[in-house]
């Protein structure tokens, strides 16, 4: 660990920190520790990003290390590919998840394959930061869940932190990794503060984290849905139902062993995600549980997800997203099976 890179006040003791601050601190650490690291995207420079995640970075590291690009997502990722081929470690931001679509060709056909296409000759250590998921009742395209799309692509790794400490640690891991990573920031959790100690990641890439232990069923989630599962577990506990909450953290690779071990303990699994049901990662989780913990299962894996409709506008969004009530209904179904 580079002790110096973590601001002393954050390393020493737990501090009230938001995810926005944690990602900002991680970028600061990364820019300080490796002069090859570059941060760029739309409005990330003087403005500090629309979510202020890059706040102050240009002032601190200069406009060669942290810079605004013209507004074109495909070229932002294409730029990252070329920079990586010239020895840099790019950390591009795409402003909102829905605007990753114009860049899908560069992400899928170029960034994800360049290392493979060149049989390992071309380095591709790119981390694409993507403010993700719903929960802020934003305009159309400003809240989407693209994890299944990216997890499907050979050559990409995908993660989604759920709290500030993980946001810090996972970003350090993603950027230091020598492969392209899609780092999905749950924008609904940007401003929630938690008393955390920002430090070096203590789990390897691909490791899940047990957020809460329980013995009756496992709730599997990532991103903002982890917090929602914690709320559900809290309520269930009042009725004597002890729910385990497993934060996958990495959606590619998925922690198959961690998942199977938890279900082996509880015998029941409920997977919760914001994305539409069909071909969502809930299907992958369900299949993995069936393949690796079938003998322990006492009920079919339940899926609590968004619906097969576009993210809705305004006040319908909270109803589209998995609610605590729907999670508890699924828990009831699995317990009563």
């Amino acid at each position: 660990m580079t002790e110096l890179a973590v601001p002393a006040d954050q390393a020493a003791t737990a501090t009230e920190t938001s995810m926005q601050q944690a990602v900002n601190a991680a970028l600061r650490t990364l820019l300080a520790e490796d002069p090859a690291t570059l941060v760029f995207g739309e409005d990330v420079g003087r403005l500090g990003g629309v979510f202020r995640v890059t706040d102050g970075l240009q002032a601190e590291f200069g406009d060669r290390r942290v810079f605004d690009t013209p507004l074109a997502e495909s070229a932002i990722i294409g730029l990252a590919v070329g920079l990586a081929m010239n020895g840099w470690r790019p950390v591009p931001e795409l402003q909102f998840d829905g605007f990753a679509y114009p860049a899908v060709d560069q992400i899928v056909n170029q960034m994800a394959r360049m290392h493979y296409r060149t049989r390992g000759a071309a380095p591709m250590p790119i981390t694409l930061r993507l403010p993700s998921f719903g929960g802020i009742q934003a305009p159309e395209h400003h809240g989407e869940s693209l994890e299944a799309l990216f997890a499907h692509v050979p050559g990409l790794k995908v993660c989604a932190p759920s709290d500030p400490a993980d946001a810090y640690g996972l970003l350090l891991q993603s950027v230091r990794a020598d492969d392209p990573v899609i780092y999905m920031e749950p924008k609904a959790r940007y401003w929630n503060r938690r008393a955390v100690r920002l430090g070096e990641p203590d789990l390897p890439i691909g490791a899940s984290r047990t957020v809460r232990e329980g013995r009756h069923a496992t709730l599997v989630a990532w991103g903002a849905m982890v917090h929602r599962c914690e709320q559900a577990a809290e309520l269930a506990a009042e009725d004597g139902v002890e729910l385990e909450v497993l934060d996958l953290r990495w959606l590619k690779p998925i922690d198959t062993d961690g998942l199977a071990a938890s279900v082996a303990r509880t015998g029941r699994a409920v997977v919760v995600h914001e994305a539409p049901l069909t071909a969502g990662l809930g299907a992958e989780v369900s299949a993995l549980v069936t393949e690796h913990a079938f003998a322990s299962l006492r009920a079919p894996v339940q899926r609590v997800t968004g619906f097969d409709v576009p993210y809705p506008a305004g006040p319908l969004e909270p109803q589209y997203l998995p609610t605590v009530d729907r999670i508890l209904l699924a828990v009831q179904r699995t317990l009563e099976f």
Partner: peptide
């Protein structure tokens, strides 16, 4: 597809 890579490479050189 590779045309933006050339720009990224070139920007990397000037940086």
């Amino acid at each position: 597809g590779p045309v933006p890579h050339a720009v990224g490479w070139a920007l990397g050189e000037s940086l």
